[in-house]
Design a protein around this nucleic acid. Structure first.
Lengths: 252, 252
DNA sequence: GTATGTGAAAAGCTTCACAGCG
DNA sequence: CGCTGTGAAGCTTTTCACATAC
């Protein structure tokens, strides 16, 4: 890739999109860059340097530049990146200009909260349907949507062209729900239920397990404790201080 | 490591714990192994092969064996791993035998759900305090806990030895809350608010951004769509089928 | 015979450091 | 002269394949 590639821009449906095959690690960071860029745009910035954007996104600038270079995106040497152009590029790559329809299965404790989560609507998604198996929940109104019985999933998924499903059921029902989603034509699943889902290979699954996050933190607590207890152990609150650096985020 | 290392076992506080320094990628998978092991234990299994446990955890067996080898843990060649022994080992490494106290800040939509999330209690954590700034929420009872004003954080954190804090506030207040948590002696933070937190380097932060998860899935939808539209594009629902394989989970 | 534990190879990702462009 | 874009180096993680132990 020596020549500049002005990678297929948003509006342009001229030829083949020539979809760049980005490293997974890069893909996982693009949404964070996008959030940082939106924030910058609100503050009125028109351009931003790799240094500046990297700081706002919590990564180092070399990584950011390498990531953006994969998009074929262009900054201007000596100047930086055009904020709104980069926003458009990233939104296009992520497919956010399509305002995708999402459904949510399981309207318990967590599902209820997700149904009302404003962050989905504001960042490219429409929650268009809620499902549950519990007849006591079916019919309930949440945030302007009526909870449906899961038997209606196939029909509604077709009507609304739902490609993404969110599972927020107890662990025991998650696989059954996943099978139903797949049967209804859903090809991406975000799973909040602990455990592994088995799906056809054309379906993407991402998992968020809240207890696992805490357990990873617990490991680090345990390690820190065993270090302070031993060698040149720093007694209590003391450290170089306030190095932001990359937040360990949902990845891969 | 040619000789067997029966790595410091749970009960034993004989000498120095000799904390193994595990690869981050391994640490992030241990909780999933633990969950799978608990599940196996419930079904009455006393031992499990690397193949079997790997399948239950959604990884391949080579990776699992390499991961466990870092613990200095021992299976038995020709047999497999002792389930309850491995459970104890992993719980010890993750520091789950300490039943850590956790506090939660921000009792909105999502915070409310997290406060009642049963998975925390059942997997090694006690949610011992809830905080908010909104005076209308302070005093509210959730799941047996009273919501306190955030000004009480420092006192209560000390009383209850809270080392882990969960942030479930709107993005705008997340940094202020993080500063307060750090001041109160919290050294691990799980952040549900979009954006990057800046904290001292002795504090660990993990981030869960629900919209980012959907955006990553959206990218894959976009890519799948652009592939089916083009080369030897498989028309619709068709694929090798049901290869479980690793769920892309919260990582790094 | 069977399944673990592990060196060694391969792949993937991050960081460096600087050429090259504006 | 400043900042991007990128080869090359270094590091981490995954995978392979087999010697080793039960």
């Amino acid at each position: 890739m020596s020549q500049q590639r002005h990678g297929s821009t948003p509006g342009e449906a001229g030829g083949v999109p020539a979809f760049p095959d980005l490293p997974e690690a890069t893909i996982a960071r693009l949404p964070e860059y996008l959030r940082a860029l939106h924030h910058l745009a609100e503050t009125g910035a028109e351009t931003v340097s790799s240094e500046g954007l990297a700081a706002a996104a919590g990564v180092n600038s070399a990584k950011l530049r390498k990531d953006l270079s994969h998009l074929g995106s262009y900054g201007t040497r000596g100047v930086g990146y055009d904020v709104s152009l980069l926003v458009a590029q990233i939104e296009y790559i992520l497919g956010l200009d399509e305002n995708r329809a999402v459904c949510l299965v399981g309207v318990g404790n967590l599902g209820h909260a997700l149904a009302g989560y404003a962050g989905f609507a504001s960042r490219g998604f429409r929650v268009v349907a809620l499902f549950d198996t519990d007849p006591r929940k079916v019919g309930e109104q949440i945030n302007g949507l009526t909870v449906r019985h899961i038997d209606d999933l196939e029909r509604i998924a077709a009507e609304e062209s739902i490609a993404i499903g969110v599972i927020a059921t107890p662990p025991g029902t998650a696989q059954t729900v996943a099978d139903a989603l797949v049967a209804a034509g859903v090809t991406s699943i975000l799973n909040f239920a602990p455990g592994v889902l088995s799906v056809p290979s054309n379906v993407d699954v991402r998992k968020v397990d809240l207890a696992i996050e805490l357990q990873i933190l617990s490991f680090h607590e345990h390690r820190k404790a065993s270090l302070t207890a031993l060698p040149g152990g720093r007694s209590a609150a003391a450290s170089p201080d306030k190095l932001p650096d990359n937040q360990k985020a949902v990845g891969s």
